[in-house]
Design a protein around this nucleic acid. Structure first.
Lengths: 420, 420
DNA sequence: CCCATTATTTCGAGGGTCGAAAAAAATAGT
DNA sequence: ACTATTTTTTTCGACCCTCGAAATAATGGG
């Protein structure tokens, strides 16, 4: 519980305005007034400040008869509204995604246009501690070098990684795709690029992207479950990203499905991931020993082959997918018992076989006898995990950028009022 | 994201002051200044308003040499601080606890002194819908009738019930101790007593009490697991009560331990409660069929008999407690995977045998290989569940009362500034 | 070219917090 | 007894912020 001051009000309302502009870019002052509920006077004051700071620009007049501006019928009468838009030139932000053996980066301007984009394969498992940070820095430098808009200041960097970062977003506590623990990431990059860096979990970024893409479908509470080299989860609860207490991750994949069951990569037995992770499915489908970790890296083509075989009638393969579904359903049942039911999106290579798993997921989810029913669980699937991760990381970076922008006190103030 | 106004600042700071007074009752303005970080001027303004409203009173002078007021040595020099205290007369709040076959109530004044207290046995399972509400109302009326301080206005009622209430706190969605679903509670009581009513979960109230009693031990994130006729959980995460999304409850007891395992009261199989709930332990210890629900009500004496037998070497009994521990540990492992480890208090009649269960809880919790270690899990136990529930409900009622008090606009405002 | 209409800006009013100065209320010392 | 010193509270003016009302700006329609 912290005390408030008068200017906290301004900060808060400024943020409301900024996110309203972001969601409807461009938007007129009048629309802002109705959307936010602030008075016209306040909208003028706040947008005036933002224009002066260069975060917003006035869009060129589009003529009053413009259909877009005239919601209902008439070719409007009075003074036309002038649209305000995010100023692309205000800043750039970057997202760096570290996945198994691949690092990719995207840079967008302040209004969200992609201005650079790059991807590179690396041997993430064998890189040394410093090499990893170096590698992330290198690719960002290269990407920026290719862009003409790169001289705009970089104001925020989000690093999304498959694994667990600390709650502060400075380091990777553990990740299946690198061989180090407690790997400090943020400091090095912050110094190099002179911008705030936040290290976070890829599944969480996916949930951010889904929320951006389909807010209606996913609502205030939902989960994105990433079925890839491991199983991750991004949780949104009551409109807020929900990480762990100490870390950024909610380790859905490492909830226990069968006590003393199949060996999981985490070293314990019976985790959901040991049955529903790509290696778990492959192990089961190829008759591997459940007490031994497969060494092979399973990519999406292997998984889709397996799915194909299952559909052709391969008993072992289809059993593997069913078991995976059962494990996932079991986990969801527990999750729903704990937090109440919510929509779930399955994302990533594993989602390619969602149709094979769904019946068992639903079966194992079962009905709920107390509280809300599970029978109509909303389950969705999509495969484009990298795309979503990137998008989520960019959206998050922009939101963080908005936050930092407003916390920095008035950078310039010659000539306060000077319009004509 | 909502917009702020200037007076939101006052409201927020007023609340800061009020909770500071509550936690240190009585407290001087100077102490308030240092504790909250507000300026002396603001403290004067806010406390002035609260004094005028009758929420606070100035304590009588205690003399300046008073040791309590002079933190370090000296018999202080200057103007003495004057202590402000919550005005007991400002209001009363009540807590009504509905447990298996018993309903109890406590009323405290605004400063937290108990002014009435009553308990009554009822046959909760057979009461009709209206009878239940009537019964809660009756006992509160009787308790108030006995008290001399009852004419003070009742400003808040918290109803704590073993079971699931909706997120708004108006009704009981489901409870093992009554035979109805979606039982509307709040409306009836609100009309009868003309005070806001909040229906909540008993385990959540226990967590509120623990937080009040031992804030150091439990910190910002912890769980209270109530081992009674069923198994409930109250979760505090990052300093906030965490209920479900739609309901008030996090149903720890109905997470699945063994797929298709023992029959649970909820109608499904293999829930943690089916092994670690009182009836589950009793069923296992007496060799009952795990697929059949025991009809007997297990009270604490039965449980302590079983524990005694286990300690005497009764194999079946000690196995029952071990299985219960395994089930609880399994659930905690999943919870910790999801949310990261935190301290856990086991409360209620089941905690009487905590020593018999703890080894298996820890064994089944195991070590954690990713993220934080589980090996040093902080587990505590205490048996006085009813006492804690009551205390938590009262604390919650007082906090809610503070909230409503401040949302009511200035009741009087003749003569704004009028000191001399 | 003037009017009706809609969008924005300007201008107090009213409410908040803060720091500095003033007032209050004790104690210490002579 | 009385003054100086010390510490707590209150008062006062400066500065922020939002809001409603009035003023100003910018169009389309006659």
């Amino acid at each position: 519980m912290t005390i408030s001051r008068s200017d906290d009000v301004r900060r808060s309302n400024q943020r409301v305005i900024l996110t309203a502009v972001r969601s409807r870019n461009p938007i007129s002052r009048t629309e802002l007034r109705t959307v936010t509920g602030l008075s016209a006077a306040t909208v003028t004051a706040i947008t005036g400040e933002l224009l002066e700071n260069g975060l917003l620009v006035e869009a060129e007049q589009k003529g009053n008869g413009d259909a877009a501006n005239a919601p209902i019928g008439v070719s409007r009468r009075g003074r036309p509204q002038v649209s305000l838009a995010l100023n692309p030139e205000a800043a750039n932000v970057a997202a760096i995604i570290l996945t198994l053996n691949r690092v990719s980066v995207a840079v967008v301007d302040y209004s969200g246009n992609v201005i650079a984009d790059m991807s590179r394969s690396v041997d993430s498992q064998t890189l040394g501690r410093e090499e990893i940070v170096q590698c992330l820095a290198d690719i960002l430098v290269s990407a920026l070098a290719k862009s003409t808009a790169a001289e705009r200041p970089l104001r925020q960097i989000t690093v999304a990684v498959q694994g667990v970062s600390d709650a502060e977003g400075t380091k990777i506590q553990w990740s299946p795709i690198i061989s180090h623990r407690d790997l400090e990431i943020a400091n090095g990059l912050e110094k190099k690029f002179n911008a705030p860096v936040k290290v976070t979990n890829d599944a969480t970024m996916i949930s951010a992207a889904l929320r951006e893409l389909e807010p209606k479908r996913y609502g205030q509470s939902f989960a994105a479950i990433l079925l890839a080299h491991g199983i991750g989860m991004g949780l949104y609860l009551r409109g807020q990203t929900f990480g762990g207490i100490w870390s950024s991750a909610t380790e859905f994949g490492h909830m226990c499905y069968i006590p003393n069951g199949a060996l999981c990569r985490c070293g314990r037995h019976g985790c959901i991931e040991a049955y529903a992770g790509d290696y778990g499915i492959w192990r089961a489908a190829t008759g591997g020993d459940p007490k031994v970790m497969p060494t092979r890296n399973i990519d999406i083509s292997v998984l889709s082959d397996l799915a194909e075989r299952a559909k052709q009638g391969d008993k072992r393969a289809s059993k593997a997918f069913e078991d995976a579904g059962a494990a996932l359903g079991h986990g969801l049942r527990n999750l729903f018992a704990l937090l109440d039911p919510f929509p779930v999106a399955f994302v990533g290579s594993g989602a390619i076989a969602f149709d094979l798993m769904e019946p068992m997921i639903r079966r194992s989810l079962g009905l709920r006898n107390i509280g809300l029913s599970h029978s109509d669980a909303e389950l969705y699937s999509r495969i484009d995990d990298l795309h979503l991760t990137q998008m989520g990381a960019l959206v998050t970076a922009l939101a963080d950028c908005d936050k930092t922008v407003q916390s920095c006190r008035e950078p310039v103030n010659f000539e306060q009022a000077n319009a004509g």
